[in-house]
Design a protein around this nucleic acid. Structure first.
Lengths: 163, 163
DNA sequence: GTAATTGCAAATTCTTTGCACATAT
DNA sequence: ATATGTGCAAAGAATTTGCAATTAC
């Protein structure tokens, strides 16, 4: 439920496990069942998951991990580059598989919380020029467009519960 | 200290008090010393203040208010339209005087936390078109460009303490 | 075996809420 | 007078941390 259209394709659960296992090995860190399971949930999902949703995803797979472990593993996944951290100003963070897409922006539905992604080359150039003009060494940017998605406008979506 | 260049000009402390007093009157709400003092700090400042910084600002003026009052009054100021709420993904909110500038974007220095503002007409049109293309009823957007400001690059700024 | 991870619960940070007391109108 | 605001301390939500028991290598 609530699986917004995406720019790229999430990799398979298996690929997720193996990619993370490799990274852990390379860094001399123990490969544990929890770590692989969490990688599978986050990287295998096409959604932008909150820490809580990751924990729920684990249980759906018949696995589980304590809250602390979920957060600690998410940090590792971000460090490994396999996962990207997002902040849509909801008061908590979301985690998204780092796909092959170099960079993309987000459309956030203020009704149901659904997220759509899109890419716009112009934005890349535009923000670079703007940063230059203000004598900033640009590191990156974030654009979130807020609005109401078509499903919510039509009253279709059965009111997701999002905080 | 740490007063980034701004797009518009903050109104004076007096204007702030009077504007808020008027709004409170119009809405049948009691005009209290705390409310006026908080309005003066937030609207009179050219910065993007956190709730804590507002409280500190009060003490600097020889006034003070409890945390709850600060938050409750900030809500009122936002409702009155005199103040705008911002979320730069720092884990807490910031509040900025609503100046005459209709909408502007932010450049955030990841070293010292300084914020510069800028305006770009193209962004307005661009985000409207993008929202349309995705069948979203656009409500607004937010662009934050992250980077390192010139002062920090030159090692000039005496390393602000920002969380 | 030993060092690192796990899970639980306690601690933190930002923000909200309940309630007795104080204050604006 | 009376409704509303204020401050304090407790409650909440998201996240982090301390620590004994457990597990990977």
């Amino acid at each position: 439920m609530n699986t917004p259209a995406l720019v790229g394709t999430a990799r398979t659960a298996q690929e997720a496990r193996e990619a993370f296992r490799l990274w852990l090995r390379e860094h001399g860190l123990p490969v544990t069942g929890q770590r692989l399971a969490i990688a599978e949930v986050v990287i295998g999902s096409a959604d932008h998951l909150s820490a809580e949703e990751v924990a729920q995803g684990l249980e759906a797979h018949g696995e589980k991990a304590g809250t602390a472990t979920v957060y600690r593993t998410l940090d590792l996944l971000v460090k490994s580059g396999l996962v990207v951290e997002r902040d849509f100003g909801e008061g908590f963070r979301r985690f998204e598989a780092a796909r092959d897409v170099p960079h993309h922006e987000h459309l956030l539905c203020t009704e149901c919380g659904a997220v759509q992604e899109f890419r716009d080359e112009r934005l890349e150039r535009m923000t670079t020029l703007i940063a230059e003009a203000h004598d900033f060494a640009r590191q990156g940017h974030r654009l979130v467009i807020r609005g109401v998605c078509s499903a919510c406008r039509r009253g279709t979506r059965p009111s997701d519960v999002r905080r």
